[in-house]
Amino acid sequence: MKKLFSFFLFASLIWGCSPNKPTEVKEPTKTYSFLVGTYTDDPNQGINQLDFTPATNSLEVRVIYPGIQNPSFVLANASGDEVFAVEEIHSETGGNILSLQRSNPSEALKQITTMPTFGDHPCYLALSPDERFITVANYSGGSVSVYKIEENAKLRHLQTEQHSGKSINEARQEAAHVHSTVFSSDGNFLLTADLGSDEITIYDFDPNSPEPLTINNTFKTQPGDGPRHMIFTPDGSELLVVQELTAALEIFDFQSGKLTSKQRVALMADTYKGEVGAAEVRISPDGNHVYASNRGEANSLTVYEKRDDGKYWGIQLVSSGGSMPRNFNLTADGKYLLSANQASNEVVVFERDPATGKLSETDLKVEIHKPVYLHRLAN
C-alpha cells in the first residue's frame, strides 16, 4: 500500500488483544433496539429488528417487513414511527425507496409509499435535520435524489442530480458511484461522497425551492481513494470520511460549505499488505473516539482517539468478530458496539470502555441473513 498519508503506530494493535468477554449484568431493564438492513434471497427475509438486553444476555431478532428486495439501508425518524428503506436493485427507473409506518416498536411495518430512486442500486439514505426531506444515493446510477416527506410519511420526488466522472481504479472507478449523502447540522448543505470520481460534492440545500439542490463546490480527494461514508462531528465543524479503496480515514474542517483536509490516518498498520475495503465510520456519543471498519482480508475495527491538539490517533485494532463488517453501530450511551458481519451472517456485540474508547468482544452474537446496516432506534 502506498504511503499516501501519515501512518500511526499500533503499539498494542495485535489480534487477540480483546478476547471474548462474558457480558456482566448491568441495568436490568435496559434494552437497545436497532433496525437491521439486509440483502435478501427469499420473500421471507427483509427488514429486521434487533433487541439487545445485556442483563439477560439476550439478542432477539424478528422480521418486521418481509418481501422487500435487498433493503440494504434503513433508517427511522426520531420518534421511530416512520421508517424509510431502499430496495437496492436495478430496473428501468432504478431502485426503489419505501416509506413505512408503525405506531410502536412491537408492531410490524406497513407500507405507505414506494417510489423509484431514478438510479440503479440505491445504497444510502439521509434525513434532513427537520425530518421534512430525505435523500438517496444511487451507487450504480451515480446520482442523488431528493424527496419531500409529506403528511403520514408520503413521499414526493423533487429532484435527481446526475454525477459524472471516473478515476484511476479501472475496476471500481469506471464511472460515478454516489455512495452516501449527509446533511450539515444546520440543514443548509448536503454533501455527497462519490466513490467512482473521487469527489465530495457540496450542495446548497434550499427547502423552499422546488429543486432544493444547487452545487456550491466540489472537493477532489486523492486519486484512487474511493470516498464511501461520511459523518460530522457533534459540533458540525469537522467531517470524517472513510476512503474505501485506500483504507484511510480523512478528517476535514467544514466551514461555510467549504472542506479543508486536516489529517489522514490509516485503518491498518503500514506493515499490512492484504486486501482492504473500508466501510463505515462512527463517532462515540461524547465525540472523543472514532470507529471505522475494514473488510477485505482485514475484517477489523479500528479505534481512534481525539487528542487535545485536535489530532486523531489510532489506539486499537481488533477483529470484527466475523467476516465482512460492512456496518456497525454504537448504543446511544456508548457502552456497546454491535458489528454487522455480512459474509458470516451475524451481528457481534462488543463492550466499550467509555473512558478509553477501547473495545472488548463479548461472547454474544446472533445470526441474521446478510446484515449490512444497523440503525439505532431511540430507547
Rank of each mutant, 00 (worst) to 15 (best):
T93Q: 15
G94D: 10
H90N: 15
L98P: 02
Q111N: 11
R102S: 10
A108H: 11
P105H: 01
A108Q: 11
L100R: 01
I112S: 00
H90T: 11
N104H: 12
E107L: 06
L109T: 11
A85P: 04
S103E: 13
T93M: 14
F84S: 02
L98Q: 08
N104L: 07
I112C: 02
E92Y: 11
L109V: 11
E87F: 03
P105M: 04
P105R: 10
N104A: 06
V86N: 06
K110D: 09
G95Y: 05
I97E: 01
I89K: 11
H90I: 09
P105W: 00
G95H: 07
R102I: 06
I112V: 15
I89N: 08
L98H: 12
L98N: 04
E107T: 00
N104C: 09
A108G: 10
F84R: 02
Q111F: 00
S99M: 01
N96E: 11
I89V: 15
L100Y: 03
E92R: 12
P105G: 00
Q101R: 14
I97F: 03
V83Y: 06
E92M: 09
A85M: 01
N104T: 10
E88P: 10
E107N: 10
H90F: 12
T93N: 15
I97T: 01
K110E: 13
Q111V: 15
G95Q: 05
S106G: 13
L98F: 08
Q101E: 07
L98K: 00
E107V: 03
E88W: 03
R102A: 08
E92D: 15
A85I: 05
E107Q: 14
N96P: 04
E87P: 05
N96F: 13
Q111K: 13
E87R: 05
E107Y: 01
T93Y: 13
E82H: 13
Q101N: 10
E82S: 14
A108V: 01
E92H: 09
F84V: 00
R102D: 10
A85G: 04
E88A: 08
L98V: 01
G95K: 06
S103V: 07
G94E: 03
V83F: 07
L109S: 08
R102Y: 09
V86Q: 03
A108W: 02
G94M: 03
H90R: 10
P105I: 06
Q101M: 12
V83L: 09
N96D: 12
N104M: 09
Q101A: 09
K110M: 12
R102G: 02
E107P: 02
I89Y: 03
L100T: 08
N96H: 12
N96W: 11
Q101S: 13
V83Q: 04
N96I: 06
T93F: 14
E92Q: 14
S99Y: 04
S103L: 12
S106F: 10
S99V: 03
S106L: 10
L100G: 06
G94Q: 08
A85L: 05
N96A: 12
K110F: 13
E82A: 11
S103D: 14
V83E: 09
E92C: 01
V86R: 04
V86I: 15
P105Q: 12
A108P: 04
N104Q: 12
H90A: 14
G95S: 09
F84P: 03
E92S: 14
S91C: 06
G95R: 08
L109D: 08
Q101L: 09
A108T: 13
V83S: 04
S99A: 06
